[in-house]
Simulated scan of single mutants.
Amino acid sequence: MPKYFFILIIAMFTFGSQFAHAEPTVIRYPRPAAKTDSHFDYVQELLTEALSASPNKYKLLPSKATMQQGRAVHEMKNGTGEVDLLWSMSTDEREKSLIAIKIPIDKGLLGWRIPFVIGENRQMFKTVRTLHDMENYSAGQELDWPDVKILESNGLKVSTANSYEALFSMLEAGRFDYFPRSIMEIWKEQEVHAGKNLVISQDIALHYPAAYYFFVAPNKLQFALDLTNGLEILIHNGQFEKLFLKYHQSSIQKAGLKHRIVLELQNPFLNPANMPLGRSELWFKP
C-alpha cells in the first residue's frame, strides 16, 4: 500500500479529532441592566433550538458589562467583540449597519402597547377615542429606544430616562403620565414591580408597525447564516409557533385587545417594503 495512503489516513484522523474537539465560537449578547429581562427565557430557548442543528457550534455569553441598546449597536458596528448579537426593535438605520435576520421573533407584538399608569389614574384614558386625545399626556421611554422617535413623530409627548429601571420610579413619582409597554412585556413587569403603585390601563392600546429581529455584528456572517437557517427550520416544522404560543399566548389573552380602543400610529423609521409582510405566518393578528 503506498506510503502516501497512510499519511492521508493519519491526516484524516487528525483533522477529525480536531473537529470533534473544536471549541465552540463565543457569541456575546448585551448583559441587561434590568432586574429581569421579560424576553430572555423565550429568546434563549429560541436560540438554543435554532442553533441545535448547526454544524458549527456556538457558546452564547453575556457581555462583561451591562449595556444599553445604543452602546450595544455601537460595539457591534465597530466589531469590538464586546457584543456580537442583539435582539431589538428594528429601524432602517440599524438594518443598514448590522446584519438583520428578518424573522420577527415577536410576530409584531412589540408594536402592540398598553400603558402602565399610577393607581389613582386607572381611569385616565376612559374617554380617549383618537390619537388627538392623547396629546396632553406624556409617555415615558428609555433614551435610546426607537419608540421615542416613533411616539414623537406621531405628535405624542415623551419624557426619557437613562435607564429602564428608572422609568418605573419616575412614573410612580408623576414625572410622566403613562409608560406604554408591549403586551409581551407588561405582565412580567407588573410582577417584578408589584410593590409600586402601578396598574395596567384597561381602556386603550397603541399600535405601530414594528419588528423584533435578531441583529448580528457584520463580522459574524457565518453565525448569522447558521441562525437564519435554524430559525427557518423551526418555522417550517412548526416549532417556532409552538414556542411563540408557549411564552406569549397568556399575555395576548390577558391584553384583551378586542375590548380596547386601538390607536394606530405611523412608524416612519421602518420601511414596510423591507419587512417580510408577505409571510403571514410570521405576524400576529388580534
Rank of each mutant, 00 (worst) to 15 (best):
Y137T: 10
M1A: 13
L225N: 13
L227S: 03
V128R: 10
M124H: 02
E45I: 01
K96H: 09
N154H: 08
I7M: 06
W187E: 02
H21V: 09
Y29L: 06
Q266D: 14
P180R: 04
I233K: 14
M184Y: 03
V199E: 09
Q222A: 10
K77V: 09
L131N: 04
K57Y: 00
P55Y: 06
V83W: 06
I7H: 07
F40W: 15
L231C: 11
M170K: 12
I200Q: 09
I235A: 05
W187G: 02
L51K: 05
V128D: 05
Q202W: 03
F223C: 07
F125Y: 12
D133P: 09
A255V: 09
F116P: 01
T228M: 08
L171P: 00
E172D: 15
T36G: 05
I261F: 06
P104S: 09
G155R: 10
L277D: 06
N154V: 13
A100T: 08
Q69R: 12
G256D: 15
W112V: 10
Q123L: 06
F15D: 05
G81R: 11
A33M: 09
I252N: 04
Y213C: 01
M12E: 12
P272K: 10
A194N: 10
K102N: 03
L206A: 03
I204E: 04
F244M: 11
Q239S: 11
F5H: 12
K157G: 04
S280F: 05
R71T: 11
S63P: 08
A20Q: 05
I200A: 13
P286R: 13
E191I: 11
N154E: 13
Y42N: 01
W87Q: 04
E95T: 02
W187A: 01
H259I: 00
F269C: 04
D41H: 11
E23R: 15
N197M: 08
K107H: 03
R260I: 12
N267H: 06
E172P: 07
D37Q: 04
G111V: 11
Q253N: 15
L47K: 10
K242L: 12
N197V: 03
W87Y: 09
R31L: 11
E82G: 07
G174T: 07
W187Y: 15
H207G: 01
S251K: 02
R28A: 13
I9M: 13
D84Q: 12
E93G: 02
E264H: 15
D144L: 02
V73P: 02
F6T: 11
T25H: 06
F40C: 04
S182Q: 12
M134D: 07
L270D: 00
Y208K: 09
Y42C: 03
Q141Y: 05
S250H: 14
K64C: 00
Y58L: 05
H236F: 10
I233C: 01
I252A: 05
F19P: 00
R31F: 08
